[in-house]
Design a binder for these strands. Sequence first.
DNA 1: GGTAAAAGTTAATGTAGGATAAGAAATAAA
DNA 2: TTTATTTCTTATCCTACATTAACTTTTACC
Lengths: 195, 195
Amino acid sequence: MSTSLIIDSITRHIQLSAEEKEHFVSLLQPKIYKRKQFILEEGEICKYSTFVTNGCLRGFTVDQNGFEHVLNFAPVGWWIADMYSLLTQKPGILNIEALEETEVLLLSKSRQEKLYLDIPQFERFFRIITENSLVSYQQRLIDNLSLTAEERYNNFCRRYPTLITTLPKKQIAAYIGVTPEFFSRMQHHMLKGKK
Amino acid sequence: MSTSLIIDSITRHIQLSAEEKEHFVSLLQPKIYKRKQFILEEGEICKYSTFVTNGCLRGFTVDQNGFEHVLNFAPVGWWIADMYSLLTQKPGILNIEALEETEVLLLSKSRQEKLYLDIPQFERFFRIITENSLVSYQQRLIDNLSLTAEERYNNFCRRYPTLITTLPKKQIAAYIGVTPEFFSRMQHHMLKGKK
DNA sequence: GGTAAAAGTTAATGTAGGATAAGAAATAAA
DNA sequence: TTTATTTCTTATCCTACATTAACTTTTACC
């Protein structure tokens, strides 16, 4: 089980002793998902916080008309969950799917809660990453209210330069909030504009 | 200084001794804002978490074309801040303004940080309310990607029934993401549809 | 390496919601 | 109570993006 990445990303925010690290690692379950395999499906209760050590996941919803909307991507080093369902333990609306073969570390809700009591520093760690996540969703909401699709795409490229090359365009379109057809036309238009 | 509301809302999530409550309250600064007065302006550094004990605030951005977009409302019992600016201590893009005469309790960033060390339970409290806030922004983002303006308005009415009566329609329009003109037309259309 | 499936493109037509303008109604300040 | 300001409405025209459909290219996997 490769845990150096998760430990590094945690100790960027809090300090842990060797024993604490060891204890934390003992709570994690490694798992591998194949391309297109679902980590979580709409209607299920989310039982885990999922940390990606390899590959990439996507969280998305399906609307009344069957169209998919991407809430988030989780590339290497990111956490993902259906936060609503994880917190309330009620059925969620999120689907989480592997975009390619993906290795994760699972932290169950009950173990996460116990962790807060055993090592209170983790309360701080999850507070901090939740705060950062909140800020980025607020910014994205403002972007969706203020900007054109073209501007939102430019922001996406600026914020996640590595993802543009790896993700199918279809998925980026579903993230910025346009149809694949319009996305295609938009890119054509942007190229023309630059020349 | 009326602190029973803030103490109640905190002790719904964590337990505090009488001394801890007293200590917490000693960190708060009461303040009153007049209608249209700004709590924070774009470009400033956000120094406080603000808790509303009376009245109502709004957080909004102004886009390139001068249009306002409402990120959030803070009625009685809610916290508000420019989270990006508060966390990074860099100039923010949010304006926070009083919609009516409003009483608040201010908790400065430095005192909040010290509070985490003095009473670690507060780390948990702010983790929990940040998680809840995150969930609602995620849901709102999905709504903006999936639903029509009419459906978003219905959701707003369902989620914040008390606010519909008190807020100017203009502000609700800027929250759900339409112009006041279209909002007006939309309401007319909805009435017709119901009969 | 072949083939089915998925992803991407292009074009024509349609629509939710924006822009502009101008007046009516409500509210606040004096 | 009056006046000024803000909010709300209605109507017309306009645009960013959606829909549909048909086609091409790329990718996965047997």
